[in-house]
Amino acid sequence: MQQWIDRIRFITPSKKTCQKVGWVLALVVVLYVALTRANIIQVPRLSRSLQQHQPGMHRVVRVDDGDTLTVARSGQVDQVRMLGVNTPEIHHPEKPVQCYGDRAAQFSRDLIGEEVRLAADPLDDNRDVYGRLLRYVYTPDGTHVNARLISEGYGFAYMRFRFQKRPQYRKLQRVARKNNRGLWGACQLTENQYGAPETVPVRQ
């Protein structure tokens, strides 16, 4: 029995040894954090396949124009109309291509990328008269696409219907117009049948 007790005492580290080990581990952690922040050590990122399955994100099939996109959700394909913003037309069956329409579409394509998060508005309908989902659109990093289109001058705040972000969008449009951003400085403007602003066609 005494022989086993002596063996346990032999393999059990002393308090001083434990303290040394603790200091060494702490030093390793500090060095790792410092090297990581300096980009000397690269922290592995999620693979593309894992990123494409983040909860709440939907795969973008295509961006149809500045304010419309098509996504894959719940095993089906849905067209999404961005809430509260109206960009110049490029595919309207009854209207010619309007000034800044192509630029707005390209801006949305560049900004949106491969995935989006969609959010409904409790004050507005779920779908419009064409069956499109009415949604706020966000990129994976949280960028609010609807708001960016208005603030950068690629689209108008669409005030015809009620929605929660009306005051925010109205303010963004006022600033964009004051600073002649995008279409406000590049296009001739007119009004549609509802009294809302729109750009004149590229070819009349």
Results as ranks from 00 to 15, higher is better:
75 G>Y: 11
60 V>Q: 04
145 V>E: 06
70 T>N: 05
123 L>H: 06
104 A>G: 15
129 V>C: 00
122 P>A: 12
149 L>S: 00
59 R>I: 03
127 R>A: 14
66 G>N: 01
65 D>F: 04
155 G>N: 00
165 K>E: 12
87 T>Y: 01
162 R>E: 14
195 G>N: 11
151 S>G: 04
62 R>E: 12
114 E>W: 12
71 V>M: 08
180 N>A: 01
143 T>P: 09
150 I>H: 02
117 R>W: 03
195 G>H: 10
161 F>S: 15
86 N>W: 00
165 K>R: 14
121 D>H: 05
104 A>I: 06
101 G>W: 04
138 Y>M: 04
122 P>S: 15
197 P>N: 10
87 T>D: 01
157 A>P: 04
72 A>F: 13
141 D>Q: 14
127 R>S: 10
110 D>Q: 15
126 N>I: 14
190 T>K: 12
78 D>S: 13
78 D>V: 13
98 Q>C: 06
188 Q>P: 02
115 E>V: 11
152 E>G: 00
100 Y>R: 07
167 P>E: 00
188 Q>G: 14
174 R>F: 08
113 G>V: 07
201 P>H: 13
87 T>P: 01
145 V>D: 07
160 R>K: 15
116 V>Q: 03
173 Q>N: 09
159 M>H: 03
170 R>G: 12
151 S>T: 09
129 V>F: 05
189 L>V: 12
53 H>P: 00
196 A>F: 14
63 V>C: 08
97 V>F: 02
178 K>E: 10
83 L>C: 08
105 A>L: 08
190 T>L: 08
132 R>T: 05
196 A>L: 15
